[in-house]
Nucleic acid binder design. Structure first.
Lengths: 225, 225, 225, 225
DNA sequence: TATGAATGAGGTTTCATTCAT
DNA sequence: TATGAATGAAACCTCATTCAT
């Protein structure tokens, strides 16, 4: 449950840090941090691809380019690796989103910018699959579901609700009941994420377009596109 | 929870229940069908509770009250049992839903009846978890995802689209873009299902109420409650 | 801690039970019991030869002629196998010893018969090594030490004390303090057991002769050898 | 196998404790010897507490306050560390005991002083557990058993035998057979050591008192306490 | 048809040992 | 000399699958 703040290893003076498989970087601590990062990324890929139970630590190690034992220098066991992983990936996303919008312009613009950013940065990336992973494993990992609820869902709902109430107050939103169910606002975004994972090859979905239609429903049709 | 379309197992009239000391049914074929049904139900419970990989055939057998070997008399292996299971559970639901609506009254009424039925019969039952199970395991079981897409999603989308177009034609629905994204119509329902599984203990969600608000968005506020 | 009374599988009607590696005996239960017995014997050998930690379940399985998994059909894990093993081996020995002596003749004769029996049946057999095993692993297996104390040591001490007091009352034993330390009576026996395990190849020890000298010390020299 | 009493580690008189910030000793050699001693003590504790196989070098290192790698600067590997350890601990004890008694007074006094000293210095200290450790690991470490036999047992037996023969010659000991089995003389001491390790919490044993009773058996009851 | 004991491949985890720093 | 991150062989244990009864 402790958060292990990713060992904010300040990139060593030489600029050669960063991407994987780099030649031996400056000091030991930095190399360790690199390995850790490689493990995290590899684990995320594997967990997303196979789910928790079907993921083999062997594969994670191989993908990360480390020995199996090395994983245990960074994580207590498979289970806590999974839980910590979710935190490690979610936290920076949440941080970015919370400090995002300089609240200017109409509520609709605000929502649209926000949702578009989310779609761009989450829905169509590995992090989108993470959402599906949480949906999939949540019931078996209450700690993960709890964390996700507290850090993402609850805050998200609260933020949406504030926006909706602002919209209602300003007359941008007609449907007053919406304030009770901010989930409706983000429903299509979640649908997009899941759709991409499961049905993209059957029928691609233009998430951005769908989002605009949804916002039209809420805010009324746009005059100027 | 009991699913049994199979209920056509009405005990045939012969009294030859003889061979051993079993209480309920009569001939071998019937007993086999019963066992099969028990296995299906047990497997569904277990798969939903733990996911595919973490489910043990041992537990399924125990829950079904049969020996482990018996499972292999009915299913080739764990994987095909899972795939077949999804079909077995989905098919009757789809059948029921397709022959549902005596198409009378307004489109909104139609949608509302339909969605309410769905919420009642699916979202708040074991079958709701099945949806989450498919979301969870879909990527590892393309056959399942494909089947689900063909049988449920595609038809559902088509049906929704027809309804939406009818609504637009009749003037009940203003937002014409909706016909391109019928997903929006069902988005809150899916949200409900997922919410129940993951966050119910944090914050219960009144799915029916949320649905009404959503329909208000689409059809305009109801005059008479 | 439960004792699992060795599944007193009454030897099947045919006399072909018993020693290992027998061709498939009558019924399944019997075969299972045979396997169980083979595992117990193999485990005892291995634990004695290597100690708890250094013993590999793989080797036990190999020696017992079963697959690794089979062990887990009979024992929860390595640790409880070890603990149960000690019980399984000790119980019958204790039973035999407790119902042993038809109390006739002098105390010395009684003690000598008893101790000789013990030396013959325990000290110079695999069961002697078991004593050393318990000495070795006792501190890490309090449950084993406790069981051994309750079942063997405490009873043994009590029995010895009764004998000693009888000897004192009859005038066979002069040293009255002995009743407070019955351990002295059995000390040479234990020494023998340990000596055999460790130093036999350096200098063999005639346990029976040593025992006689020790008894001479206690009861006074024998008139007739 | 090298023996290094090393206790010549008296800090040399130079004050050049400089290089880093260590409190106690002065030059490199001295610091190394200190570390070595710390490792030895830590290892002894751990081996006694857990046995050879279950002891982790990690724990030894931690307890000794050195890094894991440092151990390998002093010992070839775990196994030879164990063997060397036994020697290192036993040698000084043997030395002390061999040069102990200025042989004066009765044989009984001699034996009593000797055994009491042993009980005080060995049986009730960490070194007592070492005896149990040797009993436990002896069969797997012939080198250890051999060494122990040569250095301790053989000498001890010889010494005891000499004393016993002296006692017999002087008429202090009646039982002539004792000379053939000096083991009897020390049996209660060994019993004490083992008893302390295994059963002390069940029933404490007054080793000194037991020893006196035993000596009374051999030498006849004491007239004057 | 039904059983469940038996199997053994394969997974997670530990830990003695090495080696670049 | 000392470190401790990294390794990977090897241990324990699980569980899908088989097959004699």
């Amino acid at each position: 449950m402790t958060l292990k703040p990713t060992k904010t290893v300040v990139a060593p003076a030489n600029g050669t840090s960063g991407t994987r498989a780099e030649p031996p970087s400056s000091n030991r601590a930095a190399r360790a941090a690199e390995r850790r990062q490689a493990i995290i990324e590899a684990a995320l890929e594997e967990f997303i691809a196979r789910g928790f139970a079907a993921t083999r630590l062997d594969d994670i190690a191989k993908r990360a380019g480390v020995a199996k034992g090395t994983i245990y220098l960074h994580f207590k066991d498979k289970e806590s690796m999974f839980e910590e992983l979710v935190r490690l990936v979610i936290v920076p996303v949440v941080e970015r989103l919370t400090k995002l919008p300089p609240p200017a312009g109409s509520v609709r613009d605000l929502v649209e910018v926000f949702a578009s950013t989310f779609l761009r940065e989450v829905a169509s990336t590995r992090r989108g699959d993470l959402v599906r992973l949480i949906v999939a494993e949540g019931p078996r990992f209450p700690a993960v579901a709890d964390f996700y609820y507290r850090e993402v869902v609850q805050r998200g709902i609260a933020g949406m609700r504030a926006l909706i109430e602002l919209g209602i107050a300003r007359g941008e939103i007609r449907e007053k009941g919406l304030a009770k169910f901010p989930q409706i606002l983000v429903a299509p975004v979640l649908i997009s994420v899941i759709w991409q994972s499961l049905f993209e090859r059957h029928a691609p979905l233009d998430a951005q377009a769908m989002l605009r239609v949804h916002l039209d429903l809420i805010f009324g049709e746009r005059r100027t596109t």
